[in-house]
Design a protein around this nucleic acid. Sequence first.
DNA 1: CGAACGGTTGACTCGACTCAAATCGTGTGG
DNA 2: CCACACGATTTGAGTCGAGTCAACCGTTCG
Lengths: 252, 252
Amino acid sequence: MESNASIDVRPQLALGESGGQPCIFGARDDLFKPGDPSPGLFLITAGVACRYSLLASGRRQITAFLLPGDLFGARVFLDVPFDHHLRSISVLDVVHLKRESFASLGAAIAPLRQRAWLAAAQQGAIAREWVLNIGQRTALERVAHLLCELFTRLRMGGLAIGNRCMLPLTQSDLADAVALTPVHFNRTLMDMSRRDWVRFRRGVLEMRNLRALAEIASFDPKYLDVPGEMDDPKQAGEVVTRSLWRYYGVRP
Amino acid sequence: MESNASIDVRPQLALGESGGQPCIFGARDDLFKPGDPSPGLFLITAGVACRYSLLASGRRQITAFLLPGDLFGARVFLDVPFDHHLRSISVLDVVHLKRESFASLGAAIAPLRQRAWLAAAQQGAIAREWVLNIGQRTALERVAHLLCELFTRLRMGGLAIGNRCMLPLTQSDLADAVALTPVHFNRTLMDMSRRDWVRFRRGVLEMRNLRALAEIASFDPKYLDVPGEMDDPKQAGEVVTRSLWRYYGVRP
DNA sequence: CGAACGGTTGACTCGACTCAAATCGTGTGG
DNA sequence: CCACACGATTTGAGTCGAGTCAACCGTTCG
């Protein structure tokens, strides 16, 4: 079969070298809403964003969290507008490659396009896992599974320090992702805290008993494995640095 | 931006001309299970398949239905094994393009690869919609939404006749897709039947009040729109013919 | 005929939701 | 510096939608 060797696995570099523009969005800012065309590719370098949909009842479902290292906007290649909202949760640093600049890149967009499909494939796998999670698991299992996923993804990106990571989300955000009310999410989290499995305070997640959490959630990280997702250590370090700087408000 | 004009929008032809092999699977046959590598690309020409996952508790969640015209197996391009089960529900006619034959195709796989990403993108959008559906809607809304989706997808593929379509699924299959127990799914379907909104008997779905169903489910088909998904009428006709022949057991 | 499976219905249970209120933390204006 | 406002979190009490368990019906098929 055809080799994947030609795929550039370092989107940071690829987007930067291809003329991507670093830019910043404020917290809780709707970047796109349904009907908006995608203006290009975005790579998150620091912060957290989400995809969400609203129902007439006013209820919100978050359908994806986008973390540092994640790529979004692949719809630009399909000429299909967004069918959901895309919003920053924390302050968000991205690198933006405008669709207008695609033409001038010529054949050089091929690896970027490939990289975007890869990201879309991983996000599709995560969405299917969320269907399973929300559909079949109890509140305790659901919350444990989400925390395992987020922690694992952040760790894969080099964003965990030991069993802790920055996670600038509110309990309401997390509740909307696992389809629980904030009240019941809190009860569930309290339950897990009392068992000393996790601690989640002021945007810092501490996985105090990852084994127990993964066990109860039947968390199997295989669905997160997409080759080419890992960045090289130097890159990852850069992301960590920027993230910490952003989250703490201090340049370390 | 780069034009999509070079993308082959007729996978039937593309797969056939590229040396795809027509083949048939029996009903309720597991084609792949977690850990299996993808042996290539598949296009469904007749019948229904699904993706599903099992939990230790024995509960099953269907995460996708694959209908005639749908493409699967794009993982072959990622070198990532399946993380879920893929199973035929009815008898399934597919065209299979083996991964071994990719090399000999040279640059000719490019449009196929593109087509596979497109299909994956649509399936990702559907998965996100299912997260919303299962997470936030009541049983009645959920069932209505699923039926609207399936009917719309079949109609887009030319597989509906008026307000009816063949849908060779059991209530248990549908229940596993919307994360309801078969018992409660049945109650819900009975409720909708009594209102004369749908009729679903022996694999035939009749949407007797599509407006009411779409209304209660807040069904908006935009998420199904992916350019290049529509086949030309001749192709669609061929699919219809084969599907009917298969479902009815008669060559019309 | 009888087994097996899908579908239908009833009675009861329970997990998560709703409504409501109290607490905590942080930022802000006086 | 303190008083206050606001958002986020925490807890209590009562309700309800969907699950569970169980029985029964109707077809199909060996």
